[in-house]
Design a binder for these strands. Structure first.
Length: 402
DNA sequence: CCTCCACAGGAAGCGCAGGAGT
DNA sequence: ACTCCTGCGCTTCCTGTGGAGG
């Protein structure tokens, strides 16, 4: 048998409707940000103080995922730093994602490392790193720190307190903070002093509506797909789906990306409504699967108990009608969970903690629960799966196997 | 009406892992 | 390297709630 063709030859030569696939992934930060002009202007206004040698006020930005918080902030910072270096102004900035650096110490090290790239600070005390940062700012530098996903920081109170106190010790330079979060509630848990200093200015990014999403998608389509390979109605459909679900630009983009991949796979030349609909299912599944796989093992077991009971479609014993199929009692789920956990795990959480799990699962939208009303003895919760039982059962089986 | 049932969910406390201080 | 401290996941204990049943 002689091998005439490299195995990648076929794959490489495959027709694609993408011009540049990277342009339609969620990681890509677009150059233009439609419908966010006023926010860009407002933030620029705030941070421009540093160009004039003053301290910029701290800013807190809130908005759900995919509303452009990070993109807008990054965009403004890029412009600011570019301008500063052109004019030789002593302004510097730094972006930290607090999901990866979730403590005061780690954030400080990350920041200082940026300013002293050749030195390594891991292992030094927090106080020392603080001093290093202060030293840097003392050279009449104005620093703007962007803390993305700021709600993930464990000891935020101390961090903000420390950084604002830095400003008191500085008579020339300054340090300002831009905090970004998609959780508005977290603000209330903060120390009042932290809150007032972090939230000198606040901004709320609203979700995009269907029309805005349409335009965003159209722009991206132009650079990501070959001309005329995406039908207009497909774009509108993707925008409508995303708008209805969350107003999230990220899911809108994901929808089109997957739809494009589906078309490619089938060798089609166009993306139509049909592909978008199929992509919707895929994106949904991906979301659910991601959610399930990040759940603690015990919680996965609880969900598994719910889904396998739902699959069995147990006829509701002695229930006087009026109750939907697939609705389960809190108690019977706990029994099933105990049985399952004993079957292939030895640990079983208490009933109290099981209830905690149930309410968390509800917060994630994986299940729906209602309080029992008439016709049922005592007070309990009636629980139903938020998605297809078979599918979830399958997903967890896959997850538990690993 | 009272009692029991079948839970919900708050409070306190416990053991552990990992980080800070020494 | 060592203790000390602290946050986290969890248990135990407890009080509250609303319908069923006598």
């Amino acid at each position: 048998m002689l091998q005439t063709q490299n195995i990648f030859e076929k794959e490489f030569a495959k027709e694609t409707i993408f011009l540049d696939r990277n342009m339609i992934t969620p990681h890509y930060t677009p150059k233009v940000l439609p419908f966010r002009e006023t926010y860009i202007e407002d933030i620029s206004n705030l941070v421009s103080k540093t160009l004039k040698g003053q301290k910029a006020d701290n800013l807190f930005i809130y908005g759900k995922t995919g509303t452009g918080k990070t993109s807008v902030t990054k965009h403004v910072m890029e412009q600011l730093l570019e301008f500063a270096s052109q004019k030789n102004l002593p302004v510097e900035g730094n972006y930290v994602n607090c999901r990866n650096h979730n403590s005061k110490y780690r954030i400080l090290v990350k920041i200082v490392k940026e300013f002293y790239p050749e030195e390594n600070f891991l292992g030094f005390s927090a106080a020392f790193v603080y001093e290093k940062l202060l030293d840097y700012a003392r050279k009449e530098k104005h620093l703007v720190l962007v803390l993305d996903e700021i709600d993930k920081v464990k000891d935020l109170d101390e961090l903000v307190y420390g950084l604002t106190r830095c400003n008191d010790e500085l008579d020339k330079g300054s340090i300002s903070i831009i905090g970004i979060s998609n959780n508005l509630m977290f603000k209330d848990r903060l120390d009042p002093r932290t809150k007032s200093s972090l939230c000198q200015h606040e901004m709320i990014f609203p979700p995009y509506n269907a029309q805005e999403l349409s335009e965003i998608l159209e722009q991206r389509t132009e650079i990501a797909f070959k001309p005329d390979s995406v039908e207009g109605s497909a774009i509108h459909l993707a925008a409508a789906i995303a708008a209805q679900e969350s107003g999230d630009a990220r899911t809108a983009v994901m929808l089109l990306l997957h739809a494009g991949e589906i078309s490619d796979k089938k060798g089609l030349r166009k993306v139509t409504d049909l592909e978008v609909k199929k992509a919707k299912k895929k994106v949904e599944e991906e979301l659910i699967f991601n959610m399930i796989s990040t759940l603690p093992e015990q919680q996965q077991l609880v969900l598994y108990a719910i889904s396998s009971l739902s699959v069995e479609k147990k006829p509701m014993h002695k229930i006087t009608g009026a109750i939907e199929v697939g609705v389960l009692f809190s108690g019977e789920i706990y029994d099933e969970y105990c049985r399952l956990s004993k079957k292939f795990k030895e640990t079983t959480v208490s009933a109290r903690w099981y209830r905690q799990y149930i309410s968390e699962l509800e917060m994630y939208g994986l299940i729906v629960s209602t309080n029992s009303g008439k016709g049922i003895k005592g007070q309990t919760r009636l629980i139903k799966l938020g998605f297809d039982a078979e599918k979830i059962k399958g997903l967890i089986e896959k997850e538990l196997a690993t």
